[in-house]
Design a protein around this nucleic acid. Sequence first.
DNA 1: TCATTTCCCTAGCGATCGCTACAAAAATGA
DNA 2: TCATTTTTGTAGCGATCGCTAGGGAAATGA
Lengths: 232, 232
Amino acid sequence: MHPMVNDDGTAKASKGPEAASARVAGDGEVRTRPRGRPRSFDRETALEKALLAFWEQGYEATSVSDLTRVMDIGAPSLYAAFGDKRSLFDEVVRVYGTRYGSFTDRALAEEPTARDAVERTLREAATAYTEPGHPHGCLVVHAAANCSNPEVEQSLRDRRNANIAAFESRIRADVAAGVLPPATDAAALARHTGAMIQGMSQQARDGASREELEAVAEIALSIWPRTGTRTG
Amino acid sequence: MHPMVNDDGTAKASKGPEAASARVAGDGEVRTRPRGRPRSFDRETALEKALLAFWEQGYEATSVSDLTRVMDIGAPSLYAAFGDKRSLFDEVVRVYGTRYGSFTDRALAEEPTARDAVERTLREAATAYTEPGHPHGCLVVHAAANCSNPEVEQSLRDRRNANIAAFESRIRADVAAGVLPPATDAAALARHTGAMIQGMSQQARDGASREELEAVAEIALSIWPRTGTRTG
DNA sequence: TCATTTCCCTAGCGATCGCTACAAAAATGA
DNA sequence: TCATTTTTGTAGCGATCGCTAGGGAAATGA
């Protein structure tokens, strides 16, 4: 696809400067350093800078010139290490998902009920979306808004809708288990949760504080029947 | 500011091809047609096309080339009639506010209680944000997202926050009147409403149907105490 | 008819966009 | 030392961005 992409360019994982050339067959010593001139920058550090830029400004408003400036590398280095702008953004979204955006998945996996998962998600969203040290709000919600590239826009839309679908199936499971009433509209409840998350993210971008978002979350949580199995 | 802007270019209201040259002093007859070559396009029609383009793609992703194509006029005609891209967008936002986005103001002005106003707003949002014939969601919420021009982004942010502030003062009025409990957190309740509106708008952009948004609205409304003065 | 006024069309301005050709620089193994 | 491999910086590609100069076209009043 791309002519000048080296081994760890568009690869899935971000491996360091290993993957050497000289391979010692069955022995353990594969400590050989790569062949040519070594990279002058740390790939993960540069990726983190790109993440913050995309998070702040969105995919399209972040130019390659912006990226090379904040990553402190030249354009050819960027293209050699990350492919093109789109590939870099995809990798940024992956890293964002594992580093910043995984509280929803954790809540769904670890909490005993759907309500508890939603409660934890909304409360953690209030914190995460206003945390100092990085842009406010959710990258997945905002970074591909008004994007001329329909594939980029669709990829984040898919993530948002998959998130809501995960809530819905979790709610359905609680309905089947008798934790929630049989008449529960799981789809609507899940979509309501998704709308709250996205609305809170927009509020965070518009300047709302953590306390203000927490108050919003409390209100949103009051719709859930308090008949859960929680001990609290 | 702009050298080649005629009388009705960047003016507040969109007046037609009047504002004639020959002025009959105190008499009523000011029917004289303008002096030079008449415009070959209808200004309001072109403005509506620009509105739909900005609504669909956002401020920055809509190029002047896009605009001249959908408005079916040349670039010099656009600049002569509307100033620059920014002025055209400002006018589009004004028209959008009066034509599509005024249901919130109407609800706040016409409904007897804050709860009724929010109820009507959320229900009408479900309809308006999924209406066929124009893009889904709210222009004010989305059109300036990820905008490189901070003034444009701020102008819509101000509108969103002013909207929430209007809800808050309406809620405070009901608290003062005894319609809502004295312990009501007006700011949080207003922000919750704003987050719901923005979340529903995002949902509409992501493909949610009117029925789905109405179900979300019903859930969101269930947080309000049903002790209103409504007869229904 | 004719000067005046205003609009439209062509054509192109300088700036920026994403991206890359090219050659020097810095590491390797032999 | 020297050929090989990979990265780096420079410099610039074609395309598009927002915007406008300039001259002809279409209306006016005289």
